[in-house]
Computed example of a mutant assay.
Amino acid sequence: MAVSHCILNQNAVIHGWERAHGAFPFAVELLKKGIAFIQLPCPEFLALGGNRPPMTYQQYNELPDYRQKCQAMLEPIMQQLIAYQAQDYQYLGVIGINESPNCSLSGERGVLMEEFFALCKEAAVNTNFFEVPTWYSEENQGDLNEQLKIFLKRGVENE
């Protein structure tokens, strides 16, 4: 499964916007169940650093060569996905972050995810997805684990 970078590393988000210490709790639970992750890069952190200001999709989209940088960052990820599928590993899809300017999947898709899905289409890689809601945090996990179970079951059935 591919995951947005900050799912496993909250240190990459804008300071003060962290929603967990280290990784999101649901990620730790998925790892305990034997689900492996391919961590997507965080283009926001790599391009602008940890002290970057909050920016919108439009602002990232207008940065010179930003999409090309995202594409270049995603190339080794796609190579891994294709190699794992060639070895008959089950790829369940991607987990993104709702309302992220780069990792949103529903509504206005983030810049990085637009590029990721375009590459997946070219490579005929599964594009099932799940999105971490804006309300989710270490302190407020709500029914996310139940939602994830449904997503994972659907992913296994579609393989």
Rank of each mutant, 00 (worst) to 15 (best):
Q141Y: 14
E108S: 13
I95W: 14
E108Q: 15
I82V: 15
N51Q: 02
F26S: 00
Y57N: 02
T56P: 03
Q87A: 09
A124M: 08
N102F: 15
A124L: 11
P43M: 03
V125A: 03
V111K: 00
I77P: 03
R19D: 05
L46A: 04
Q141T: 12
I7W: 09
Y89N: 02
M78V: 11
M113W: 11
N128Y: 15
I82W: 04
P64E: 01
H5W: 12
M55Q: 08
L63T: 04
Y60F: 15
Q10Y: 13
E99Y: 13
A118H: 06
R52Y: 12
L92M: 08
G16N: 06
L8K: 12
L148E: 05
Q141N: 08
F45W: 12
C103P: 10
G142N: 11
R67V: 05
D143I: 10
L74I: 07
A12H: 04
V94N: 01
M78F: 15
K32I: 12
E62M: 03
E159F: 12
N126T: 07
A23V: 05
N158P: 01
I35T: 02
P101R: 00
S100M: 04
E99K: 14
L92A: 01
R19K: 03
L105M: 15
L8R: 09
E99D: 15
E18W: 09
A124H: 14
Q85C: 04
Q71M: 13
L63Y: 04
E75N: 06
S137V: 05
G34S: 03
F130A: 04
D88K: 13
A2T: 07
Q85R: 11
K33P: 12
L40C: 06
F45G: 01
M55K: 09
P76H: 08
E131N: 10
C70G: 02
Q147E: 07
L81C: 08
L119R: 08
V132E: 01
N98M: 08
A72I: 10
G107D: 12
G155P: 07
G49N: 03
P76Q: 02
Y66H: 08
P53V: 13
Y89P: 01
E157I: 00
E157N: 00
A118G: 06
I95D: 01
A124S: 14
A86E: 11
V3E: 00
Y136G: 01
K153A: 00
N51S: 03
Q58I: 07
W135Q: 10
L74E: 06
C103Q: 08
A124Q: 10
E146H: 04
P64Q: 00
M1F: 14
G50W: 12
R52V: 13
A124W: 11
K149V: 08
C42S: 04
L105K: 04
V3I: 14
